[in-house]
């Protein structure tokens, strides 16, 4: 088996593999920076919660239109944005922290979503919505992914400065007259959009993996936001490629294969990355005075 057979032939010979790869690359483009900021803002779990929150909306869309993309997308988008706004409002008006309020919302969303799908669909439909079907993405889904990546990168380029400042030193931005809450909500909105983009391909339960895993892995390789985002994007794209190939050659579901590829990069980064505390700890300690 040549390298061509292993790495190129599947994409040359099969249209569905090409489309899946393009979808992965599109997702990687914008999820790199979104994931990096989620991690920096200590919001990785919130990303997870928002991903779950998409499900009931998508489920209602599914009730109306089946697997028709606009219904799924609009439903998921509406549900995701409502939960993002609600969580923000609950946090501002009560003493519940945002992660706690999201943690309280998303089991409800997940349960409701599963219930709605079960009312009118089969177990296979449920599996599709939960875990995605990247090998079945059509042109409309590709345009959606590409469009969301474009919008995300443009908006991020515009609000990058206040977003980073609000993240690094919220007190400073507040003393300057604020706007912090607005940028925060905008960022949550972009996060929901990107989860929607990934939802068709990877499903509600795994789309957040392609966002968070590469971003966390990147923190072991770089120390500056720009490079973090670039590395995260590269890791996500590579995971997409490798995951698709693995799924093609040994015939396993592609969504989990992609996420596991990203997981493997994460583990390697923890072990080998120059900024991994672990690799430092495993090296012989010569400077420590008190080796307890």
């Amino acid at each position: 088996m040549t390298l061509y057979d292993v790495a190129l032939a599947p994409f040359v010979e099969y249209g569905f593999m090409r489309r899946a790869l393009v979808a992965c690359l599109g997702l990687s483009l914008s999820s790199g920076i979104i994931g990096t900021l989620l991690v920096l803002r200590r919001m990785s779990l919130m990303g997870d919660a928002l991903a779950h929150a998409i499900l009931p909306g998508a489920a209602l869309g599914f009730l109306i239109g089946g697997f028709w993309l606009p219904a799924l997308t609009l439903g998921g988008l509406a549900a995701g944005l409502v939960v993002a706004l609600l969580a923000g409002a609950v946090t501002r008006t009560t003493r519940v922290r945002e992660d706690a309020s999201l943690g309280a919302t998303y089991p409800i969303a997940l349960a409701f979503g599963v219930l709605v799908i079960s009312l009118n669909g089969s177990t296979i439909d449920l599996m599709h919505l939960l875990f995605g079907s990247i090998l079945a993405v059509d042109d409309m889904a590709l345009f959606l992914v590409a469009g969301i990546a474009t919008v995300t990168l443009l908006v991020m380029a515009t609000v990058y400065r206040p977003l980073v400042l609000e993240c690094f030193d919220p007190g400073f931005l507040a003393a300057l007259g604020g706007g912090g809450a607005m940028y925060h909500q905008l960022f949550l909105g972009l996060t929901v959009l990107n989860l929607i983009a990934g939802f068709q391909a990877l499903g509600t339960l795994m789309t957040v993996g392609l966002m968070i895993l590469p971003a966390v892995a990147a923190t072991f390789w770089a120390r500056e936001i720009g490079s973090l985002a670039l590395i995260a994007t590269s890791i996500a794209a590579t995971s997409g490629l490798v995951g698709l190939l693995i799924s093609f050659h040994i015939d396993v579901p592609s969504g989990p294969a992609i996420i596991l590829a990203a997981g493997a990069v994460f583990v390697l980064s923890v072990l080998l990355g120059p900024h991994a505390d672990l690799s430092r700890r495993l090296r012989p300690q010569t400077t420590r005075l008190d080796p307890t």
Partner: peptide
């Protein structure tokens, strides 16, 4: 101009 206490700033932030 206001300089808050050190604890409010992410001193390990990649910036």
């Amino acid at each position: 101009a206001y300089l808050p206490q050190k604890a409010d700033i992410g001193s390990n932030f990649p910036i």
